[in-house]
Simulated scan of single mutants.
Amino acid sequence: MGQFKHVVRDPVQYGVLLESLCKGGKHEDAIATLDELLEKGTLLDPRTPALEDSAYNPMIEYLCGHGQTKKAEDLFRQLMKKGIDDRMAFNNLFRGHAKEGVPDSAFEMLNIMTRRGVATDADCYALLVESFLKKGEPADARTALDSMIEQGHLPSPPLFRSVMVALFGDGRVQTASRVMKSMIEKGVKENMDMVHKILEALLMRGHVEEALGRINLMMMNDSLPDFDGLLGALCDGGKAIEALKLVDFGLERDCDISFSSYDRVLDALYTAGKILPACSILCKIKAKGGVVDKKGCEALIKSLDEQGNTKQADILSRILAGKAPLEAKKSKKVAAHPY
């Protein structure tokens, strides 16, 4: 390419030469020409017209495909200064950075596209999310996923799953929960096993209101969690009060909870010495027509008497005997005992 400065005199011919070299498969010669253009700042010369897309796109595609995305970006940034916004070039640069394991640079390209109003592709975002995950940066992957949704793209169920799994494995349970929320809001009903893990972790860590909010969202979107599985895990983990709150939530909404789960929660409360809360939830269970273990109820009545809660013991005895059906007002009063 030593003859370049002698052969090309008209600036318009720069683009023609680059296009001709690429069409002839002489990409390395085109790169040498590009190096000289970049070094001399020829592309920024106001007297030099902007290159045509047929000249720069083959160059950018070649560079991005051969591990030289940074050089391709240097070229395109000079072109952008002359007002060029080329979607194909942007996407090639983005893919190049992502494939070379530089997701931060790829994300920067997407931000530039968004600011300039250049349409983005869903697969670009998916590639970016995967690139962050490969680098072990689940928080950044989640940010990219959020950006993908904000731009009107729907992540695939496997992509949602990959981000949730990575965040969960990194101990970021509440962040994984927020991704789960986005997934449910978008009507994605796959990955329910991962949803169950996140809900269980939230409840076990004491984030009860957040977990119940997610469950309510699921129900609004025609999806149901495994109440029995969650209650079993909470009882096994010694989280009696959390289990109580979940049962209370389920009873208020007439959710499908097995009788054995009710018994497990009552046993857990009794074992933990939470007699009044046990009485409260038992009254609600009976008011809803639920069936519980009679011996356990008798033991609960005995404990109430021993602790001086004779009024509650009497109410519970009458309910179990079918003599005093709970009225709505009384039910609320009994349930008002603190957890």
Rank of each mutant, 00 (worst) to 15 (best):
Y270M: 14
Y270S: 13
T271C: 08
A272M: 00
A272Q: 00
A272N: 02
A272F: 01
G273F: 09
G273Q: 02
K274E: 15
K274G: 04
I275H: 02
I275C: 03
I275T: 15
L276S: 10
L276V: 08
P277F: 10
P277N: 08
A278T: 01
C279M: 07
S280I: 01
S280P: 06
S280T: 04
S280M: 05
I281R: 01
I281Q: 01
L282F: 11
L282P: 03
L282Y: 12
C283F: 10
C283M: 12
C283R: 05
K284S: 14
K284Q: 14
K284A: 14
I285M: 06
K286Q: 13
A287W: 03
K288R: 12
K288P: 04
G289H: 05
G289A: 09
G290Q: 03
G290F: 05
G290W: 02
V291S: 11
V291Y: 10
V291L: 09
V291A: 09
V292S: 09
D293K: 05
D293N: 15
K294F: 07
K295N: 10
K295V: 10
G296V: 05
G296W: 02
C297S: 13
C297M: 13
E298A: 06
E298W: 04
E298S: 07
A299M: 13
A299C: 10
L300H: 09
I301R: 04
I301H: 05
I301C: 05
I301W: 07
I301G: 00
K302Y: 14
K302T: 14
K302C: 12
K302P: 04
S303Q: 11
S303K: 08
S303L: 06
S303M: 09
L304E: 10
D305Y: 14
D305P: 00
E306L: 11
E306T: 11
Q307N: 12
Q307S: 14
G308N: 04
G308A: 09
N309E: 15
N309T: 00
N309F: 12
N309W: 10
T310H: 12
T310N: 11
T310V: 07
T310A: 12
K311Q: 06
K311I: 04
Q312C: 06
Q312A: 14
Q312F: 14
A313E: 06
A313M: 04
A313L: 04
A313Q: 00
D314P: 01
D314K: 09
I315Y: 09
I315K: 03
I315H: 06
I315T: 06
L316A: 01
S317E: 08
S317N: 08
R318K: 12
I319R: 02
I319S: 00
I319G: 00
I319V: 13
I319N: 00
L320A: 03
L320D: 02
L320H: 02
A321L: 06
A321H: 01
G322L: 02
G322R: 03
